[in-house]
């Protein structure tokens, strides 16, 4: 055979440095790492207690991160699930309304799966943009949560189980954290090692090519929405257990933080790019940020401002659009005179 044509991909090389650069160049978590570094360093100086009281911080990260993980699965396919916030509320209310705890949990998780399937139906079968479909669903479910709960928090019948649930279970880790870690590992394996999950990237990255290659795109989208619904329901269950009551208004701030975590983590809104690990980093930086702000005595309102700003910056600094932005800004500022 003739010698292979050297069509090297640019930065390949044998020395360690070049190899490290190649590996890093493939990653999509750049912004999350930057944010995490800044947040961690500043916090370490100004509010070191964030790290010494790490159970609190870890709890917050789990709170933000869980919903973000489910969202990531959907966004990877270029779709969006705004209904997660209400899914969380509805599933919590459903769970608390049922006397038996195990039955309640199962029912709540089933509700999450059903909501995911309904979202997927509107997106796939009817052909509505997922932004609008899940927005409608967000309102519908929020209403359902109010109706089911008679507009007030529903107390959990089995309060002891809830109290036990909030206690450390393994070392300093509460069951919530363990579930979060479990969900992270499961999804990380799913999108990197399982064929179905890996094909999410194909569905988001080049849907046409995915169809041509015989990937069942519709089924993948349904799976993605069901994952997102299931994870949001799981977050609802955990919240309800920890608070020993289900709040029909729960979840509205989670929406913002979890979107911020996923987008900061490098998940491209148009699909095909991002990682579960990136979302974890995003959630970690936002968790540390929130706890640091709380411990510094900053009000919740200001925290919302900060997280809103983080999300706004993350969504406008998407690396792919930077070049286009330079052009747009130039065009915008250019004189409007006519010849």
């Amino acid at each position: 055979m003739t010698a292979a044509l050297e069509l090297g991909s640019g930065e390949s090389g044998d020395n360690l440095l070049a190899r490290v650069r190649t590996v890093l160049g493939r990653r999509t978590e750049g912004r999350a790492v930057a944010l995490l570094a800044v947040v961690a360093v500043v916090t370490a100086f100004l509010e070191p207690v964030v790290f010494t009281s790490y159970p609190v911080t870890l709890g917050r990260i789990a709170l933000i991160g869980l919903v973000a993980l489910g969202l990531t699965a959907v966004i990877l396919m270029g779709e969006l699930d705004l209904s997660v916030a209400s899914t969380l509320a509805v599933s919590g209310v459903v769970m608390a309304s049922i006397e038996s705890l195990p039955l309640g949990i199962v029912a709540a998780l089933l509700v999450g799966l059903m909501i995911g399937a309904a979202n997927a139906f509107f997106v796939v079968a009817v052909g509505i943009n997922s932004f609008i479909a899940t927005l409608g669903m967000l309102f519908f479910l929020r209403g359902s949560a109010f109706v089911l709960s008679n507009e007030e928090p529903v107390r959990l019948a089995n309060r002891d189980a809830g109290i036990a649930f909030g206690k450390p279970f393994l070392g300093p880790l509460t069951p919530r954290m363990l579930l979060f870690i479990g969900a992270f590992i499961a999804l990380q394996v799913f999108v990197t090692r399982v064929r179905v999950g890996r094909e999410f990237y194909a569905v988001g990255g080049n849907r046409e090519a995915a169809y041509d290659a015989g990937i069942p795109v519709t089924r993948r989208i349904v799976t993605g929405f069901m994952i997102s619904g299931f994870v949001a329901a799981m977050a609802g269950v955990i919240n309800t257990l920890e608070r020993t009551a289900a709040d029909p208004t729960a979840g509205s701030t989670v929406l913002l933080a979890s979107f911020a975590a996923a987008i900061v983590g490098g998940v491209l809104l148009t699909g095909g790019r991002g990682s579960i690990f990136g979302t974890l980093l995003g959630a970690t930086s936002l968790g540390i940020l929130q706890v640091a702000l709380t411990l510094s005595g900053v009000q919740v309102d200001v925290q919302n401002i900060v997280i809103g700003l983080v999300l706004l910056l993350a969504v406008i600094t998407d690396p792919n659009s930077v070049r286009g932005v330079v052009g747009s800004v130039r065009s915008l500022l250019q004189g409007r005179s006519r010849a």
Binding site: N304, L311, L312
Partner: peptide, 27 residues
């Protein structure tokens, strides 16, 4: 500007400005 110049998604942009705006107002 976020939507028209930076080509960002309008739902996400206005979601974040909602939180920033309401946060400022309440604060």
């Amino acid at each position: 500007v976020a939507v028209g110049v930076f080509d960002a998604n309008a739902v996400i942009v206005t979601l974040s400005t909602t939180f920033i705006g309401l946060g400022l107002l309440r604060w």
